[in-house]
Design a protein around this nucleic acid. Structure first.
Lengths: 196, 196, 196, 196
DNA sequence: CGGTAAGCGAGACGGTACGTCGAGTCTTATG
DNA sequence: CATAAGACTCGACGTACCGTCTCGCTTACCG
């Protein structure tokens, strides 16, 4: 969202920012990602299309901004064990993933990977953040003495989040079992890392 | 690809089938999923659009056919251990996933999940097939005595394929390390299942 | 209206050509030139906008084609006198001008003069034609012995058509008095030319 | 240009009035009527759009003011003959018409006729003024004894101005010959009226 | 062996959404 | 108050793509 140049001119109406996000989210749920139109968002938000395109270069940017809202993931409180920490991380991320309908996530991912710049922003803000959180958790475990060697973070990332991601987005798995799956994954990964 | 009613009339030109697939793959690489148009495929293949729509109901079906060809996944030969079998399954699927560019897979998944009926067909053919393969592998392990209790197949599915999927499609991870990741995942999952 | 390249491909639907013209004329009368929209024309004609833009490069071209239909002005039959001939020419052109509402004519003229290429086509087809008709009439008068010197056609053109044009389009004059005005103009111009 | 309510508050910047007119004229010449935008005028004049809309209700009013400035047509000094008076009137109006480019006049006329109320105002100010001038001239001729019957002013208006108008706006005629055309028209009309 | 059903390239068709642009209005901060 | 800057609504524009539909041909099987 490219902010207005200076303090000159009429400032952006902050209510409109909110209305766009709200309308987008509502329509995403009501009609699904594929049937979301900019006109519909504008109509629902009670604004003109120009107000949207003044804020976002494309429809995708708009959805991106409306969907992946400030996901400022924080490292979990120290649970005392790697397994506990991993379970906490996994649960948090799983909960976030579970919020949006699968078609929205897939649509978003498709659009993100269709546009280099958007892809870079996505990686920069989300993936990097998750990676940082895992770094913290793994460093803790090392200091705690649970880990002898520091494992590759990316690998752990995949081992930990991959199953939940796959469960929700590909298998269309039961959302109520995600919590249990998170625990299972955390146990499995912790065991594996500690054993090594 | 539904075949013609009878043997009457001019038969389909088999060269066209190939040309469509070839053109689709080329354009997918050159322009990416989002910018692939049916007109462009027809033009590149030197054929008319009708020839495409006579073979495929939608653009997605066409891309599907051109991309994830004959995924008639077979249970791997018995390697003698659960870990070996899992590694084989994981490696195979990882190899398939690694063939197509990420944007294509994401686009396809998005389109699949945009349409309920298409989503059902996808699950019915691919997911069920993978599940069947895992069933076989897990049953083997049980007979072998490696497993005491038969674990939930869906969970194993997620634990095994999820990380590879995530690695390739979300993390944009190195394709050359996928093989190693497959081995790691197989080891981790096998350990976890056997221990339990 | 750029015709289709060759005999290949699906031919243009001639009914659509007619429907566009009809819808355009109707809406021009109903809503006026300024409020004519391409979407409305398409909707009224029961066709898609693409069908219009396949035929006309711009909205203006469409209106041009729909409005100034084949005005193949013919020299009037020899009335036996310059005055009679001029009156005939003036009456015919006045009748054509009087057909369309003033706002349409003004809109059209504005658009024509806004686009060089369109302006050239307009001059080429209409002005030149009228000029040709006047040439014939003036040559007749010369042969008849009414005129000693051949007057400048453009000047006669202006003297003859100008008043009627001004009456209808600028003064918003009574349409029923146009016929009388035509006669007056013809008499005035004929007298002037013969006298000289 | 409605003046500010009172003498309170900051007075209008008179330089801005001039800047608007200048910018409008420049852009009208550079880009033509159809491509003139209010934003462009504001930018060129180095002012805000609000400053324009505080002075003019619409874009058309602005162009109007910048183009056909103070047409407070006055009856010409008595030349001693109807023909001389008519020539003077015609020359003056022709000169005014000839100042602005044809596309501007056509655009303006189109906009004027697109709005009933605007059309009425136009007629009320310009046409009526010209009509008044002709009334004076014709009355003079009557008093002078040149005319027996008082001819219809509207008809004379059309006969006199129509040809020049047509010459400049429709025929795209040579601007240098307008003076000569004015004389011709005046002679023709005067002859016709006196003869009758 | 000739009829005919189906295939074919080309491209027009209806529909739908996109992103852009302009007019006229409104809002802020500044003078 | 007037001003510059620029955001706002509204509504049309012209473009692009999808999936369908003709057109005039060509091709091979079936009677």
């Amino acid at each position: 969202m490219p902010e207005p140049k200076q303090n000159v001119g009429r400032p952006r109406d902050a209510q409109i920012d909110g209305a766009i996000v709200r309308a987008t989210r509502e329509l995403l749920v009501e009609r699904g990602y594929a049937k979301l139109t900019v006109d519909a968002v504008a109509a629902r938000a009670g604004i003109g299309k120009a107000a949207i395109y003044r804020r976002f270069a494309t429809k995708q940017e708009m959805i991106f901004a409306a969907t992946v809202h400030d996901m400022r993931e924080q490292p979990p409180p120290d649970s005392g064990s790697l397994r506990g920490d991993l379970a906490a991380v996994c649960r948090t991320i799983a909960a976030q993933l579970g919020e949006a309908p699968p078609d929205v996530l897939h649509g978003l991912l498709a659009d993100i990977h269709a546009d280099k710049e958007l892809g870079a922003r996505f990686t920069g803000s989300f993936i990097e953040r998750e990676r940082y959180v895992l770094d913290v958790v793994l460093d803790r475990a090392r200091e705690r003495g649970e880990l002898e060697d520091r494992p590759d973070t990316a690998t752990v990332h995949a081992l930990l989040i991959g199953p939940v991601f796959f469960w929700l987005l590909i298998l269309g798995g039961d959302r109520e079992r995600v919590e249990a799956l998170s625990a299972t994954v955390a146990e499995s990964v912790a065991d594996f890392l500690v054993k090594a």
